[in-house]
Amino acid sequence: MDLAKHWRLRHARYRLEGQRNRLTGEVRFPPAPPRPGEAEDVWEPYVLSGRGRVYSFSVVRQPPEGFEDQPPYLVALVRLDEGPMVTAQLTDCDLDQAAIDMPVEMVTRRLRDLGPTGLIVYGYKFRPIVQR
């Protein structure tokens, strides 16, 4: 049963928490340990806005194990407004609605269900922006 590996990523997964460099202001996602030579605290937690644009997208029709109940589903590379690119599913989006450069926003959804004796893994997906 995978518990710890999902648990320790919860901030990044649930709320798109990356890191900002205290010295340069650079924002990165996903969060990572300091590189060799960097001060331990040079990267501070930083929650990204969740807004971005689709860099590219595709549809998964032959799913890997654990995703058999989901296809067809949209996956995308999303360029976030703060700069980093992330891989994620598009949700609440018709297959023919997805487009390169489409503005999207982050939502927290179920990523995987590890079965009746396992966790439900939650995390970020992206969807077409709901009008304010």
Partner: peptide, 12 residues
């Protein structure tokens, strides 16, 4: 939707 439940809807 298939990826939604009480938790995800509460969050939004």
């Amino acid at each position: 939707g298939p990826d939604e439940d009480t938790i995800t809807m509460s969050i939004e």
